[in-house]
Design a protein around this nucleic acid. Structure first.
Lengths: 102, 102
DNA sequence: TAAATATATAATCAATTACTTATATAATCA
DNA sequence: TGATTATATAAGTAATTGATTATATATTTA
């Protein structure tokens, strides 16, 4: 797939409020699904499906840790994404609030 | 509308290959619809509709010059877009090729 | 091993999307 | 003024999207 198509696919990942929120949270630290369900105030399948898309597009990586699956941001090789994500509003506070729930 | 929603809407404008191409061209200079139809190898209504969306989202401005309507990039007040658009491949050559057709 | 917890997947559905074709509007020119 | 050129709008359509509900899988713990 050519460069513009890849970029378009990546930007599509940023074109949804839920996914932007997920990415903003993952900027703070890696998080498990239930953390994100809590922050997004959404359902587990909904969050899982957004994470699946982000993973398929290569924007996040997945690591199972026992019962939990942690997702981490993976944009260091995509500078046009990394830069633009720096402009997302901070979710530091909300991320701190769910710290330790899981 | 809140910040994340606005950003999501803007990124949605970048999530389509045709619109990314249009934006890459407008980085070079303002262009009329028929210029862009030529470069995109698409139809006039198709290009017009993409431009309408870009205009509605505030990413381009429109100026009629006689018979032609010129569109120009309008992202200087959206730094998270301006930066990321710098990573688009250059369309300088293709833009030069259509110069003077209209 | 059975129950509980965390996550993934599948099916469904309403809404949105990009494109096409046809037509309307606007400006220029003969 | 009528024809031509440039652009916009509208209607139709197939494909995609995000969300929901139901169910399956995987891991831990009692």
């Amino acid at each position: 797939m050519e460069q513009l198509e890849v970029m378009a696919e990546h930007y599509k990942m940023l074109s949804d409020k839920s996914r932007l929120t997920i990415l903003a949270c993952l900027k703070e630290r890696e998080m498990c699904v239930c953390d994100l369900v809590e922050i997004l105030q959404s359902t587990q399948p909904n969050v899982s499906q957004h994470l699946r898309k982000l993973k398929a597009a290569g924007l996040v990586t997945e690591t199972r840790k026992g019962q939990w699956v942690y997702y981490a941001l993976n944009v260091s090789d995509k500078p046009y994404l990394e830069e633009t994500l720096n402009y997302l509003p901070s979710f530091k506070e909300k991320v701190l609030q769910v710290k330790g729930i899981c």
